[in-house]
């Protein structure tokens, strides 16, 4: 187990390193620099700024400087948010993104669970069809359309929830639903088919033959055994929910991290982009590692390779 962990960790670090390097290089070959603006700066002022951020050094030296910083946990200064470091910005925004991700995930699981169980219990009847239909609707709606529709109905027409101003409880409802709808649909699908599969297995038949009541069979035996595929999905999904909620962050003005994938690139804020990419990849790597570990703990048949 420890060898496996060490190997995976090393592997994860390698992925991180390649991702950082790739981002570093791609950004620098992109035309346009961080301090180009409508007011073109006099060359001597540009020189001062470049000197301040060591942008006048050769790339390789900049790269070495950056890696050395990262190794010590310093992600560098932000070029755009002049008084803040990238670590500051991530510290400010990552908790918000995480909270939103958790809320969406909880919403998804809580809603998907009864839907899937109902669908499996009434397989091939109207409840099943209805649930599958709903889930298909859920994965067919782009975030921004769902967000727009929710704002239209609940903010503008009914006035129940705020469209933005993150911080008050009623501002979290619409983004949570918007972000959670798609994972919810996936969970419903997955849990339903997993349940159906389990229900067909021998031990369920045994349980039924023993005369156990159907709800008991369903919950006690089937549900418990059908959660593995859902668990597998949970890890990567959480990573994408945390970092990939950019559209939701834009629409509902949520002070999260996802928006920097766009704004920091258009601003050419090199350290900020590399920083958020690093964090995203790290979350993804960790989430996958965690899932794999749970996996091998839960089911010893799955060999750790």
């Amino acid at each position: 187990m420890i060898r496996f962990l060490a190997k995976r960790l090393l592997h994860g670090l390698a992925v991180l390193w390649v991702v950082v390097t790739l981002t570093f290089v791609l950004l620098r070959i992109l035309p346009g620099g961080p301090f180009d603006s409508e007011r073109r700066l006099p060359p001597e002022i540009m020189a001062n700024i470049q000197a301040k951020y060591h942008l006048d050094e050769p790339w390789l030296k900049q790269y070495a400087r950056y890696l050395a910083g990262v190794a010590q946990g310093d992600l560098g200064p932000s070029y755009k948010y002049i008084d803040r470091t990238v670590s500051d910005i991530i510290k400010d925004t990552l908790p918000t993104s995480t909270l939103l991700g958790v809320l969406a995930l909880v919403f998804a699981v809580v809603l998907a669970f009864p839907l899937a169980v109902a669908a499996a219990a009434y397989h091939n009847r109207w409840a099943d069809r209805g649930c599958v239909f709903l889930a298909t609707l859920g994965i067919s709606l782009p975030h921004f359309l769902l967000g727009a529709a929710l704002i239209w109905v609940f903010s503008l027409k009914l006035g129940w929830f705020q469209a933005a101003r993150w911080g008050s409880p009623d501002s979290a409802v619409l983004p949570t639903i918007t972000l959670g709808a798609m994972p919810c649909a996936y969970f419903t699908y997955l849990l339903r088919s997993s349940l159906l599969e389990t229900l067909g297995e021998d031990f369920i038949r045994t349980a039924r033959a023993k005369g156990l009541k159907e709800p008991f069979v369903l919950f006690k035996h089937a549900v418990r055994n059908s959660l593995i595929p859902v668990l597998t999905l949970l890890g990567p999904l959480f990573a994408t929910l945390v970092a990939g909620s950019f559209v939701v962050e834009y629409v509902f003005a949520i002070p999260g991290m996802g928006r920097f994938f766009i704004s920091a690139v258009t601003d050419r804020d090199y350290p900020l982009i590399t920083g958020v990419t690093l964090v995203y990849t790290a979350i993804l790597v960790c989430a996958n590692l965690l899932v794999d570990m749970c996996y091998s703990l839960v089911d010893p048949r799955i060999r750790v390779r």
Binding site: Q162, A164, V251, A253
Partner: peptide
């Protein structure tokens, strides 16, 4: 002072009286 980038969203808040 709020930092709402999406114009449609900020207008929605204005019209909600927020």
């Amino acid at each position: 002072m709020y930092m709402i980038t999406e114009k449609t969203t900020s207008l929605a808040l204005y019209e909600q009286g927020k």
